[in-house]
């Protein structure tokens, strides 16, 4: 097994072992923190597909994170008030069933990613960064000024949504749901990376001209990658809203996009388990520094600056060396 494989195994097992220890030590808050790590890592795995493999630096993934959150909020709020979402042309009721919510979140994020991607991918480089940022912010302002679902105040859900056979209010059980989804999506990401599609996408990032020469359109590859990426981040958004039992326009805020990008980079761009390492580091930093100082974001900024300027390759890249991934 390669060094990166060992690191991945350690990260995967570590993320499982920590909340099990916390359960034994009766520290439920630590389990909640682990759930946060798993969910943010899931959002990061989504972004990593477009940013790492596709080379598409999106600063607008909060759009997908937020739409996932609102999919959960809207469905669950209608279910808890027993009012249908639509009465015409057909009656659509809200729901508290997680699997249904996830599917709706994934579909909504996928459609949104298709629309944003189709427009943004007409450009590249710095235009792409600014345009994804702008579209993310558009949804933020829309969520703030649309009063039907709480507007600026957001939506609260009284009871966490249900998963058949489990009690999601028990922290460890909810963690296991998030962890299982994370592992499944990591497996999917590994498959995508090795598939012909993933290889072509990787090639389109490195030498787009050659990909075109062999008859593959980079635009289509990138659009598909962007849509899958958005769907995964949307699923993470639905889980995140369920973790907090609250969704607000803050999920759409561009700072959220920035934080997802940060944890991908901190972990190691284009590394399979990079987002897991990055999310664990980010949440640990937030928790530890947040206890020391109200102004902990200054230190987050300094750490980030140091990583960008001096430790390129992120956590996994630094530990595993340059063997596995190229540039």
């Amino acid at each position: 097994m390669s060094r990166e494989g060992l690191i991945n195994l350690a990260l995967g097992l570590g993320l499982l072992a920590f909340p099990l220890w916390a359960e034994w030590a009766e520290e439920p808050f630590m389990i909640t923190l682990s759930t946060r790590v798993a969910i943010l890592a899931l959002a990061g795995v989504g972004l990593n597909l477009s940013l790492g493999l596709g080379g598409l630096v999106s600063l607008g993934h909060a759009a997908f994170f937020g739409i996932g959150g609102y999919a959960m909020g809207i469905l669950a709020s209608h279910a808890q008030s027993y009012t249908p979402i639509f009465e015409w042309p057909l009656v659509i009721e809200g729901t508290k069933a997680m699997p249904v919510i996830w599917l709706v979140a994934i579909a909504a994020a996928g459609l949104l990613a298709l629309a944003i991607g189709a427009l943004s991918l007409r450009t590249s480089g710095v235009y792409f960064i600014m345009i994804t940022l702008a579209f993310g912010q558009m949804l933020f302002y829309f969520a703030v000024s649309w009063p039907a679902y709480g507007g600026e105040d957001g939506l609260s859900i009284y009871v966490r949504n249900a998963f058949p056979g489990l009690n999601t209010l028990v922290p460890l059980q909810f963690f296991l749901i998030a962890y299982a989804l994370l592992m499944a999506v990591l497996g999917l990401a590994a498959l995508i990376t090795r598939s012909p599609f993933g290889l072509a996408l990787d090639a389109a990032r490195q030498v787009p001209v050659r990909v075109e020469t062999v008859g593959i359109a980079p635009y289509r590859l990138r659009l598909i990658a962007f849509v899958i990426s958005g769907m995964i981040t949307g699923l993470a958004g639905a889980l995140y809203a369920d973790l907090n039992r609250f969704v607000s326009p803050a999920m759409f805020n561009w700072q959220t996009s920035g934080e997802i990008v940060i944890l991908v980079i901190l972990g190691g761009t284009a590394r399979l388990f990079g987002p897991v390492a990055g999310a664990a580091f980010f949440v640990a930093l937030e928790h530890l520094l947040g206890g020391v100082s109200d102004y902990w974001r200054i230190y987050l900024g300094l750490v980030l600056l140091a990583v960008v300027l001096f430790a390129r390759g992120g956590i996994v890249g630094t530990l595993a060396g340059r063997e596995a991934a190229d540039g």
């Binding site: 960008v308 300027l309 390129r312």
Partner: peptide
């Protein structure tokens, strides 16, 4: 551009 985005994002935080 990715490094520039990150470093200047860090500057915003600071």
């Amino acid at each position: 551009h990715l490094d520039q985005v990150l470093a200047t994002f860090a500057l915003i935080l600071i």
